[in-house]
């Protein structure tokens, strides 16, 4: 399996005025009313369930799709479900200018590719990234390409640690596979 790139259709998380939504918190991603759910498969239908305008996301998304979000995605609590709900839906990867630190850790540890792209705002404002576009992202060399608009952009490549955990599957699998003392 080539794990160094991914291609998929994008969903740009914008508000009704078309602006990229910033500071989407973990309650908007996965509401605390559903924290009792422990089966990953059952988490998908609650993804973005509390984000205005995006409550029907689980019905619209297809496996492999890509989410594009504003800065500080995943602010708030440390709940793992806010990552796992996207894994349950087979979301391919996520692009945002920044993530809350605990969200980023949780995503990396679960092998969910969260990637940073400082240009997301200008790309969205300049209509270089629009919902429905087909996009290809190379995790390691930082190259992004919007195939629908034949436009190139760059992302921050995965660090070695993020790449290794991603390739292993998750932090626990990485720990078992790495030669280091577990």
């Amino acid at each position: 399996m080539d794990t160094s790139s991914h291609r998929g259709r994008i969903w740009v998380l914008t508000d009704t005025s078309g602006k990229l939504i910033e500071d989407i918190d973990t309650d908007q991603i996965f509401h605390n009313a559903f924290l009792h759910i422990t089966e990953i498969a059952e988490m998908g239908r609650h993804a973005l369930g509390n984000l205005e305008g995006w409550k029907d996301f689980p019905k619209k998304v297809r496996p492999g799709d890509i989410i594009v979000a504003g800065r500080n995605f995943g602010a708030g609590s440390s709940r793992q479900q806010a990552v796992d709900c996207f894994i349950a839906l087979n979301v391919g990867l996520m692009l945002a200018p920044s993530y809350s630190s605990i969200y980023f850790r949780n995503a990396v540890n679960s092998g969910f590719p969260v990637l940073r792209c400082g240009d997301v705002d200008s790309l969205v404002n300049g209509r270089k990234l629009e919902t429905g576009d087909e996009v290809e992202v190379h995790f390691l060399n930082g190259r992004g390409r919007n195939l629908s608009k034949t436009h190139n952009f760059s992302i921050e490549p995965m660090s070695a640690v993020q790449r290794d955990i991603y390739r292993a599957g998750d932090l626990f699998a990485f720990g078992r596979s790495s030669g280091r003392k577990e």
Binding site: F104, N106, S159, V161, L171, F172
Partner: peptide, 20 residues
């Protein structure tokens, strides 16, 4: 530093964490 439950379980077992 506050971390999630995956990190802490890993840290219980290994004594280590990755950190940016």
């Amino acid at each position: 530093q506050g971390m999630g439950d995956v990190d802490i379980a890993f840290a219980f077992r290994t004594g280590r964490a990755w950190f940016e």
